[in-house]
Simulated scan of single mutants.
Amino acid sequence: MVEQRARQDWTIEPMLRSVPGVADVVGFGGGIKQYQIQIDSLKLRNYKLTLTEVYRAVADNNANIGGNFIEYDDEALVVRGIGLLRSLDEIKEIVLTSPNGTSVFVKNIAEVVICPQMINGMVNHNKQDDVVQGIVLFIKDKNITEVINGVKEKIDYLNYHGLPSGVRIVPIYERTDLVQKTIHTVEHNMLEGIALILVILFIFLRRIVASLVIIIVIPLCLLFAFILVDIANVSANLISLGAIDFGIIVDSAVVLVEALMVK
């Protein structure tokens, strides 16, 4: 799972972060790829080297250094010296010391391998013991539906063009379905609530006009609430939709209508 995690960290996450409204992508599972130099202590002693010397040699050969700038017309071009290591062979060929003109390389005192970083946990999905998972975090107050659609477009592009054959991104949880179910619940509660309240109020008040007045309050209040939500640029998320309480709206209308009927 090391290669899958590396693809997520260096290919998938930067692509998804480019979607407007995405704050970050948090990766879980798999193993974080590391180039490890596994030193043989006996060989290190034979060449009269220390771990500090090996560390400094590798660090000096894996540097990214600035080199001032070059003036070009009205611009200043920054000069940078890139000496980053890119493969196991490059690490193996790092010179540690040169006693008597004979170079001692990393490969002479150690084995260079690719291994995962120490694992503190793993992600299980269904019957798979270890999978690589990424969680997309949204920016506050952004339209969730628009952001998710943008993420889906990037995922489709990566599945067909950006990933090797046999590697795919499979969504396992999506907030779009939850938001749509919440909207359906709001519509269902409104229609069913109107019908139920109409029957109950007509039974107790025995006046169809008073019952209709109370019923009309529900859609009018919802319409006013959604207008304010739109003006304030609040997205239709679980919190904003769940903040609507039909019971309080109907209770207030019932109290007012009953007070007028008593007078």
Rank of each mutant, 00 (worst) to 15 (best):
N159L: 06
P14C: 05
G150V: 07
Y160V: 07
W10H: 14
L196S: 13
A195D: 15
V26Q: 10
E53K: 13
V104H: 09
V179N: 06
S240Q: 05
S252L: 13
D24M: 07
L220S: 15
I169W: 09
G83F: 03
Q180R: 12
R175F: 06
D9A: 15
V179E: 02
L158Y: 02
L137I: 15
Y157W: 14
Q38G: 00
V95K: 12
V26C: 01
P20D: 11
L201S: 11
D24V: 05
A110N: 07
R86C: 06
V255Y: 08
N62S: 06
Q8H: 03
V123I: 09
L220I: 15
F69K: 15
V54W: 11
T52P: 01
F204I: 14
F246I: 02
K263W: 11
I249S: 03
V132F: 01
L223Y: 13
N159A: 05
R206D: 12
I194T: 02
R175P: 02
A232E: 04
Q128T: 09
D245W: 01
I218E: 14
V112L: 10
R5D: 01
R45I: 04
K140H: 12
V255L: 09
I172L: 07
E13P: 00
V217P: 00
G247I: 09
I249K: 06
L84W: 03
T50R: 12
V95R: 08
H184L: 14
M122P: 00
L201D: 03
A23G: 03
L84G: 05
G121P: 08
I248A: 15
I114S: 04
S252M: 07
V151R: 04
E146F: 04
E93P: 01
G121Q: 10
G101K: 04
A253M: 05
M1F: 01
D141A: 06
I39W: 05
G193M: 06
V167W: 00
I194K: 07
V254Q: 08
V254T: 04
A210N: 11
D73W: 03
F105Q: 09
N149P: 00
A57I: 07
S18D: 13
I39Y: 03
L196W: 08
D245Q: 09
P99S: 12
F226W: 10
L96M: 14
G81S: 06
N233Y: 09
N46A: 15
H188E: 13
V217K: 07
Q180N: 14
D141T: 07
Y160G: 02
I194P: 05
S235L: 01
S18K: 15
I216D: 13
C221N: 15
T176A: 11
S235N: 08
I91C: 09
K107I: 00
I12N: 03
A110Y: 10
G150W: 02
M118K: 13
I183L: 15
V255M: 08
Y47D: 12
L88Q: 12
A232G: 00
G193R: 05
N124G: 05
F69T: 12
G29L: 03
N62R: 04
D230S: 13
L256F: 08
A76F: 14
N62L: 08
P164N: 05
V167H: 02
S18I: 02
L158R: 05
I119H: 04
C115N: 08
C221E: 11
